[in-house]
Design a protein around this nucleic acid. Structure first.
Length: 485
DNA sequence: TGAAATGTTGGGGCG
DNA sequence: ACGCCCCAACATTTC
């Protein structure tokens, strides 16, 4: 007599290692049935965008392949989560469902309901942490309120000490029979017209790809992270964000992979670099913390006075921004990198976001929507926090009057122009002194470089100084008003 | 995890 | 030698 199987419900934890739900199920000794249920409607209004869907398809493919190496498989279903889980329970005689917790408001609410309904039917439900280092509901300040400033949040969390060591890969006991599943292709995650060439070139979705990226980063890149992280023309960052979003690797794996002092000698600068990167991991935690405690923030500004901000919706300017035709080379380079690869360097994200919100006065929500659809690492918590931060209406936000200068930002952080030349090839022959402001170049320099402003490269959508003044003026309108209830 | 305006200082050219 | 101006370099404040 074999024991009834346990369903391990995969969601955004598309990995076998350091997977608490899978580990607990394998330790329990029951046969394991790995399940994925495609139910984008349950994530509304933030169902995954086009780039995320592309990633998800390949990540599921990889997960299934690794399971098959262990003679297991991923059972794919689509439709309502409760309906499909219930059906699977009936079909397989499963007595338990395990999963790793997610924290976005809509999903957390759905999961809570599911848990109750399954329990009512006598099913054992167990849920596990692991997507984050610290449970958002447990992190509170001395007044038992959520943190709204990053530094005290980080101080509080880092004092807790190192997170537990990652879990080993599981041993999978196989069921006697497999339930039916859908073909991955039937989920329709891949684009109908193939625009994903640039994504394929840039990324290897899946646990193995994430692991390789992490190993390479921990071995080499992290050493100089403090120096190089701000230069989009170099590979100074980890590029782990999509792997973290889909749970192909975990924050505790990355913590233990780069944390200084783990036996191997490292210089002072190297330790500082590693900590400054872990601090970025803590920003990810902070953004989930904020979304958990302020669940309306994907749509509404945290600071209430920003509801009355005199935004100027303008679809043709929005489109120029989306397509990388603003006439500001750094901005255009970033937007084109995003479109081509599904990713953008963080320094450039701040520049293009500031440009949309402060130079064009277009609502940050419009920018957040575009990022949502085009980023392979689109993450509701990170995206929301990032945009509210730039717009000046979020927690610990940059004040609104901090307006990035798209010219000097380019000169500072792309000093040789490598980044701009790569993504805005039509101006690549300009000398670096004029690369970030082609409209100021003398005629003979332009014609020698074959740059014709207004013809083969756009004139600036707005004048920097005028736009800056207009933004400061618009900000005056809401300045005196109360920023929170 | 700004930028620009304004203020201060100090060296050098020059009458 | 001296005052004056210019200006770079740096610091402070303001948006």
């Amino acid at each position: 007599m074999t024991r009834p199987p346990t369903l391990v419900w995969f969601r955004r934890d598309l990995r076998l290692e350091d997977n608490a739900a899978l580990d607990a199920a394998s330790g329990g000794g029951s046969p394991i049935i790995p399940v994925y249920i495609h139910s984008p409607a349950e994530e509304k209004p933030w169902e995954p965008g086009a780039a995320s869907c592309w990633w998800l398809h390949h990540s599921l493919e990889r997960l299934d392949a690794s399971l098959r190496k262990r003679h297991s498989r991923l059972v794919i279903r689509k439709g309502g989560s409760l309906r499909e889980l219930t059906r699977l329970i009936e079909e397989t005689g499963a007595s338990a469902v395990y999963w790793n917790r997610l924290y976005e408001p809509a999903l957390a609410a759905r999961d809570k309901q599911l848990e109750e309904q399954l329990r009512r039917r006598g099913i054992e439900v167990r849920t596990f942490p692991g997507h984050l280092l610290w449970e958002p509901s447990l992190i509170l300040n001395k007044q038992e309120r959520p943190f709204q400033v990053f530094t005290p949040f980080w101080k509080h969390c880092s004092a807790i000490g190192d997170p537990p060591e990652p879990l080993p890969p599981p041993r999978l006991r196989l069921p006697e029979r497999w339930p039916d599943g859908e073909a991955l292709e039937s989920l329709g995650l891949l684009p109908r017209i193939d625009w994903a060439g640039g994504l394929r070139e840039a990324w290897t979705p899946g646990e193995d790809g994430g692991r390789e990226r992490l190993d390479a980063f921990a071995r080499e890149t992290v050493r100089d992270y403090g120096e190089t992280r701000n230069f989009p023309g170099t590979e100074g960052t980890s590029r782990l964000s999509p792997h973290l979003h889909f749970g192909e690797i975990t924050p505790r794996q990355v913590w233990h992979a780069v944390r200084p002092g783990g036996g191997k000698a490292s210089g002072r600068g190297e330790a500082a670099s590693a900590w400054s990167w872990l601090r970025q991991i803590a920003w990810r935690e902070f953004s989930h913390h904020l979304l958990h405690h302020f669940p309306h923030t994907p749509e509404e500004p945290l600071r209430e006075n920003f509801r009355d901000f005199p935004w100027r919706r303008n679809s043709s300017r929005l489109k120029a921004w989306q397509q990388g035709r603003t006439g500001y080379p750094v901005v255009d380079a970033g937007m084109r990198e995003l479109w081509a690869t599904g990713w953008m360097h963080n320094r450039v994200r701040m520049i293009v976001a500031s440009f949309l919100v402060k130079h064009l006065l277009i609502p940050w929500q419009d920018g957040a929507r575009w990022f949502w659809d085009t980023l392979v690492d689109a993450d509701l918590a990170n995206n929301t926090m990032g945009w509210q931060w730039t717009a000046g209406c979020g927690a610990d936000a940059a004040p609104f009057f901090r307006v990035f200068n798209p010219i000097t930002q380019g000169e500072k952080f792309d000093p040789d122009g490598d980044y701009v030349r790569r993504w805005v090839p039509e101006i690549r022959l300009l000398p670096t002194t004029h690369l970030f402001k082609p409209w100021e170049a003398p005629g003979h320099v332009l014609s020698e470089a074959d740059v014709h402003p207004g013809k083969n490269y756009p004139l600036p959508a707005v004048d920097h100084n005028e736009a800056r003044t207009a933004a400061l003026l618009a900000f005056e309108e809401i300045k005196g008003r109360p920023s929170s209830r």
